[in-house]
Design a binder for these strands. Sequence first.
DNA 1: TCACATTTGTCCGTATGTATC
DNA 2: AGATACATACGGACAAATGTG
Lengths: 254, 254
Amino acid sequence: MGTAISVFEPIKNNRTFEEVSTRIKKMIFDGVFKPGDKLPPETQLAKQFDVGRQSVREALRILEISGFITITKGGGGGSIIKDTISNTISSLFLDAFHLKKMSLEELTVARVEIEKVVLNHAIDNADESDFKRLKNNVAITKKKIANNLIVLDENIQFHQLIARASKNHLFIIVIEAITTAVRHSMTQLRPDANLTAEGVGYSDQVLQSKNALGYHEAILNAMLDKNRQLATEMLEKHLLEVKSRLQTLVDRDT
Amino acid sequence: MGTAISVFEPIKNNRTFEEVSTRIKKMIFDGVFKPGDKLPPETQLAKQFDVGRQSVREALRILEISGFITITKGGGGGSIIKDTISNTISSLFLDAFHLKKMSLEELTVARVEIEKVVLNHAIDNADESDFKRLKNNVAITKKKIANNLIVLDENIQFHQLIARASKNHLFIIVIEAITTAVRHSMTQLRPDANLTAEGVGYSDQVLQSKNALGYHEAILNAMLDKNRQLATEMLEKHLLEVKSRLQTLVDRDT
DNA sequence: TCACATTTGTCCGTATGTATC
DNA sequence: AGATACATACGGACAAATGTG
């Protein structure tokens, strides 16, 4: 069939910039360059690889949007090794949602199922530091709500912390991608969601933040009690409510 | 905390090539360019956007590795709109596995859990055409094995077809990413895996292909019977055997 | 087979913007 | 404020690949 998978066939690499990017990527994998290290300037890379600057630039562009390096302008700037692959994957997920016109329903169904699985693994594998981070997250959220602030990043982070507690990198990547996509939907639908200033529907959002906090606390307590069933139940309810809230925003929007 | 998520802040876009790439991306989202359409040549794009060709090239590079276009050289060539985001995500998963030194154990645990969930959704949502495709896949595999050929792509495809039957795009993306990563591991560990010529361990692989086929048939039959428990059980056994096989290759390799 | 046009790929020279010291 | 270092950007030129007559 024509469903060819074209991920691992860079043998025939007649484009110089690809050759350069794979060479640098290899060096990163091999530990020649570690996170925080700075790559040589473009001109120097061009000399060392004996290619033109344009080829180097396009190679760096690839590495940048693949999540291997970040680039800063100006003196002392340059290409710094930094792993941002999770962000990159999240961006691509968003693109895919957009392109395939994925529905909120579809996204939520998958999210609920996957997060339930991850939660169960988190209950098995969470250690003291995980619980500490989760408790801390809840505490910060509580404080913000007490000051009538809207909570968004902390709520997303709660779910990512659970994934982290599962100790499984694949789970972590998938959850980060999904939650980031959800966060994006929220800020898209309500651009003021991460502002602290008062506005239309502000108190409404504070209320919903409070609601989410309740669920997060319930989930955390159930995790501490190793009560799988309760934790799973709370998570499912929570995520379905999140969906409903988003759904009303979508409906109001159109 | 400093865990800033930097996915959705392209408002301040002072790099022209980024501006160009987001503009073209937007046009694709808006349907101005549809899959199969060809973008104007680089020189023309440069004129129309009133930028240099270098900026256009870097923009196209971004779109290319983001999975929006494919580029071919020569007369009649150019940038063609084509959705290859799944492949791109798979590649990034592979990079992430590599970078985070994810273990086979870790990958398999997550794979089993996620595929089980997807399988259950597939049982609920599969229609006649899905079953047709799955049956066809099994038939082709059987034929190949009868001719003593090694099966790889069809085996991967079987799992992707199940995901497709779930009718959930998120599941499809995740499964494609994972299975592609597994496929890559196999070809990495055994470069001759997709060759038809005889070689060391060839008959061994034919045997394992036969083994996988047995499981695939069992899973498909259980799906047809709507027997969730049996289907899930077979899938889990199957994936754990795949892991064992890969593990021995890893051990032999090091 | 042989040009020929088209389009990407590559290099160079030069200039500008920007951040650091 | 000035010098320095670096990415960013433009334009011109030619090479290489690919399809067409």
